[in-house]
Amino acid sequence: MERDAILEIRNVSKAFPLAGGRELLAVDDISFNVERNSICVLLGPSGCGKSTVLRMMAGLETASSGAVVIGGKTVDGPGRDRGMVFQAYTSFDWLSVQKNVEFGMKINGVPAAERRERAAHFINLVGLGKFADAYPSQLSGGMRQRVAIARTLANDPEVLLMDEPFGALDAETRWLMQELMINVAEQTNTTMVIVTHDLEEAIFLADKIIFLSSHPGRLKEEIVPAFKQGQRIADKERVVKLDGYGELEARLMRLMREEGRHAE
């Protein structure tokens, strides 16, 4: 199943200036592709620069060298074609759930009627139909992340970028959200790039795992979870019970541990 690449990361490096004129190399010459309609997970220990890579895809950071290319065009700054969901809550507290989800469409000039309809569709998709008129402060953490996801999807991005989106949630909410993302990916055909340090989350969501090593962040391995046989299964329990799940998890653990030792 060959699919064309929608995002190309070409020899990207990123150095941050330090005090005293020195530089910290956070990301060192990384190249990989994200295929259209796929879920690509950036995995690695802390300090591997995975969030920096994602932020460069979003255009929120500029690469020191190399380029991020989307649909043949080099990224230079943020744009609506690359929607982003953060770990921290980003709901606009002064707007209702409905208005939050309409926000991107409104600033991009989508007519009111179409806006309302699309917002309602995506609010239902993430299971918040009953809360369209609520304010974010009335919602739980998981529900607020659903609002952020619906808001980003309703804006019709080419790629959905997520930076540890469920890191602040408790375990059972996190499972529900992961299952929701599989359903969303199936129903909307959205390409997703998800940053995580949670092995389970990576294995469950990924069509492809990009494993990064730390200090500086380098591409260590590209891993396709072959045991899922190219399928997406929106039931965490079933995935965990499949043959090959444990093997892959053990392999990723080994990689994580090696990297942890390097860092010490």
């Binding site: 979003a58 255009g59 929120l60 943020p78 744009g79 609506r80 690359r82 929607g83 982003m84 953060f86 921290a88 980003t90 606009f92 926000f103 991107g104 600033i107 991009n108 952020a148 808001r151 980003t152 804006n155 970028l161």
Partner: peptide, 22 residues
């Protein structure tokens, strides 16, 4: 919070919109 500004930018907002609407 910086995330609110960055969210608006990745939704396609320009600088005046970020200041006025976020």
């Amino acid at each position: 919070r910086e995330e609110l500004v960055e969210t608006a930018l990745t939704l396609g907002a320009r600088r005046p919109t970020v200041v006025m609407k976020v």
